[in-house]
C-alpha cells in the first residue's frame, strides 16, 4: 500500500444475513459492500456519493470499528480496523447527521464534556475545545440549557460539535447537513473546510446526497451504488468524463409516464425522468450525443401532445456522472419505494 494514506480500504466486502424480522426473505444474504477499494490522503475531504442503500454508512461503520468486514481489509493511519481497534479508536470520531447525542437531561455543555471525559481528555485541555465548538455551532448562548429543551436542529449541531472534541485524525461525517436549515448547513460546510485546512494531517470522509455539497467540499469523490464503487476521482475529473456529451433538461407539464419510444430516440444516450407531484411537472434529464438533439426532442414532445415548459442545456454535475455510470438518477432512486 502506498505510504501516506490515512485511510486505506482494500477489497472490502460486507454481507448481511437477513434475519427473522423479514420472514419472507429470511436466510437470504444482502451484499452491502462489494469489493470496495479506496484511499484517502491526509488533508483532504473525501466524499462518498450514492443513493439510499448504496453502502455508505456500512463503509463508515466498518472504518469506525463498529462493524466487522466480511472480507477485505481497512486501515486508519496504517492501523488495521479489525486487529488494532483500540489504537484506531484513538484516532477517529464519527457524526451522523440527523442524530442527536448524549442525554436530554444534561445541558449542551455538559453533554460535550461527557464525551471529552469518555475520550479520557482532562478537563483543562478539553474545556477550551468545548467552548470553541459551542461557539462554532452557535450554541454559546444556549450552553446551559438542557438539551431536551433545544430544537432538533440545535441538538444536531451539538452532535456535530461532538465530532471534533477529540481532535480526530479521521472524522467521519454521515450526511452532516441533513435536516439543517440553509444557514446552518452553510456554516457547517464552511467549518468543515476550515477545519481541514487547519489540520493538514487529518482527513474528513463524508457522505451526502447533495451533489453540490460534494462538489463544493470534496477533493475526491467516490461514487458508490449497490455496494460497488463506480468511480473515484476529483469532482472536476469525474465531470470531464461526461463532458463529451450534452445534458439537456426538459420540463414537461403533467405526470404521465414517458412513451417507450422516447428512450430510443437517436442521439439520446440516457433519459431519466423525475416527477414533481407538487407542481405537476415532469423533469427530464437527457444525456445526448450533441446539442443538436434538442430539436429532435422538441419535435417528439410536441408530436406526442405534451406541453414543453422549459428546455435548457446544463453544465454537467456529479448527478450526471452518476446517471452516466448507473443509468439512474440519484434523486430518482431515492423516490422509489424500497423493494430490496
Amino acid at each position: 500500500m502506498a505510504a501516506g494514506s490515512i485511510i486505506e480500504v482494500e477489497n472490502l466486502r460486507r454481507v448481511f444475513r437477513i434475519d427473522r424480522m423479514a420472514r419472507r426473505e429470511a436466510g437470504k444474504e444482502l451484499i452491502a459492500l462489494d469489493d470496495v477499494s479506496l484511499r484517502v490522503q491526509p488533508g483532504e475531504i473525501f466524499g462518498l456519493l450514492g443513493p439510499n442503500g448504496a453502502g455508505k454508512t456500512t463503509l463508515i461503520r466498518i472504518l469506525c470499528t463498529l462493524l466487522a468486514p466480511t472480507a477485505g481489509r481497512a486501515a486508519i493511519d496504517g492501523l488495521d480496523v479489525v486487529k488494532d481497534t483500540a489504537r484506531v479508536r484513538r484516532l477517529i470520531n464519527m457524526v451522523s447527521g440527523g442524530e442527536t447525542c448524549g442525554y436530554g437531561i444534561l445541558t449542551a455543555r455538559e453533554n460535550l464534556r461527557l464525551f471529552t471525559e469518555l475520550y479520557g481528555i482532562p478537563w483543562r485541555v478539553a474545556r477550551p475545545r468545548v467552548e470553541y465548538m459551542l461557539k462554532v455551532v452557535g450554541l454559546e448562548k444556549k450552553q446551559s440549557v438542557r438539551t431536551n429543551k433545544l430544537s432538533s436542529g440545535m441538538r444536531q449541531r451539538l452532535n456535530f460539535a461532538r465530532g471534533f472534541i477529540n481532535h480526530p485524525r479521521v472524522l467521519f461525517l454521515d450526511e452532516p447537513t441533513i435536516g439543517l436549515d440553509v444557514h446552518s448547513a452553510r456554516q457547517v460546510r464552511s467549518f468543515i473546510k476550515m477545519w481541514v485546512s487547519q489540520h493538514r494531517d487529518s482527513a474528513i470522509l463524508l457522505t451526502t446526497h447533495y451533489m453540490f455539497e460534494a462538489e463544493e467540499l470534496c477533493d475526491h469523490v467516490a461514487i458508490i451504488d449497490q455496494g460497488r464503487l463506480q468511480a473515484c476521482d476529483t469532482p472536476a475529473e469525474l465531470k470531464k468524463s461526461v463532458q463529451k456529451q450534452t445534458t439537456l433538461e426538459l420540463t414537461i407539464y403533467g405526470l404521465e409516464p414517458l412513451p417507450e419510444s422516447w428512450h430510443t430516440l437517436s442521439g439520446v444516450i440516457k433519459l431519466v425522468a423525475r416527477q414533481d407531484h407538487v407542481s405537476q411537472m415532469t423533469h427530464l434529464n437527457a444525456v445526448c450525443t450533441s446539442p443538436e438533439v434538442s430539436g429532435e426532442l422538441i419535435r417528439t414532445v410536441a408530436t406526442d401532445g405534451r406541453r414543453l415548459l422549459d428546455l435548457r442545456t446544463v453544465q454537467p454535475t456529479l448527478e450526471d456522472v452518476f446517471i452516466n455510470l448507473t443509468g439512474r438518477s440519484l434523486t430518482e432512486v431515492e423516490m422509489l419505494p424500497d423493494i430490496s
Binding site: 477517529i92 470520531n93 442524530e99 442527536t100 442525554y103 475520550y119 479520557g120 477529540n166
Partner: peptide, 12 residues
C-alpha cells in the same frame, strides 16, 4: 437512544 455507538467507537 443512539449513544451506544458513540461510546463503543471511543477507546474507553
Amino acid at each position: 437512544m443512539g449513544n451506544l455507538a458513540r461510546y463503543l467507537m471511543t477507546p474507553l
